[in-house]
Amino acid sequence: MAEKQSIVVVGSINADLTTHVQRHPNPGETLLGSGGTVSAGGKGANQAVAAAQLGANVSMVGAIGNDAMAKDAMVHLEKSGVDTDPVATIDGPTGLAVITVSADGENTIIVVPGANAQVDAGFVEKHAELIKSAGIVLLQGEIPASGFARAVDLAQGRVVVNLAPVVEVGHEQLLKANPLVVNEHEGALVLELLGAPLQSGDPQYLLKALLEQGFNTVVMTLGAKGALVADAQGLTEIPTPTIHAVDTTGSGDGFVGALVAKLADGADLVAASKFAARVGAFAATRAGAQASYPTLDDELPS
């Protein structure tokens, strides 16, 4: 059996402030809600925790502040066994995500970068040897573009990118993603970022257009409709279990974390995506982000 590859996540660490409402407010409208709890989040940390809880060997490169939110932001990273030695504490606030969840489980999120804004090229360079040694380097869109670019340039293993949110990053570095993981909306924005004319929002069109831009492989998540994997052989549909969604916050990150965990085990992209869809569905049946992710002891929906 091949040795399990190590995963280095270069990304964001946040505290999530979550509120619950019957429905999302309209512009200018005030609604009463509930909640107000703080939990661990950040796309980078979410994906690192999801992968580690599934048995992956994961290191987290990122930053937190020296405020009261830092402890909440780190709790699951530390409990899940992620190597947090590369996480720096800086003078200032920890990254913050303000999340509003409606009764049907859909959410809106506003992210304030905080310490994540310090994860630039110079910060990443301090962890050059760790990144070079990784079998998989995983990145998102919640750190500065210079940090993103330096991490990709240092990587000698596989680069996986979940460009969420879609921000301006180096095109050369972005195209090294294998795979690029996006949802439909993000896929369209990536095409715009690369200067490609957008003729349709159809997922199959978007995937073919992304491959034409130079990506080797793309995984597009489609929520309750599952996902699509695009590569040189064509498109493969990935089913997802039928569930009752409680909170979709972080379920996409659960998908990505599970995907890289399986890739690190030697699975091919289609098999890894099928497993990831089940993990993402599991996460949507529980509240919160990192607290909703399964371990190897949990039974996944099928």
Rank of each mutant, 00 (worst) to 15 (best):
V246N: 14
G201N: 15
L193A: 08
L198I: 11
E192P: 10
D153I: 01
V181C: 07
L198F: 11
Q173V: 02
V218F: 05
Q204V: 15
L193C: 06
E186H: 14
L263Q: 12
V159W: 08
L191T: 09
Q199Y: 12
A177Y: 00
S200W: 10
L198K: 02
A258P: 13
L193S: 10
S251M: 03
A145K: 11
I243C: 06
D253C: 08
Q204M: 12
D153K: 13
Y205C: 01
R158C: 05
R150Y: 01
A227R: 05
R150F: 01
V152L: 09
L259C: 03
L211K: 15
A188H: 11
A258T: 14
G157A: 08
A155P: 10
N216G: 15
T240L: 09
V181Q: 05
P239I: 02
A224R: 14
G187E: 02
G254V: 00
S251Y: 06
P239D: 09
G252N: 09
G234A: 11
P197S: 04
L174R: 08
A196H: 15
G187H: 07
Q199I: 11
I143C: 01
L193W: 04
G257V: 04
E172V: 07
D247N: 11
I238T: 07
L211T: 01
G234F: 07
L154G: 00
L263T: 12
L174P: 09
E184G: 13
V260P: 11
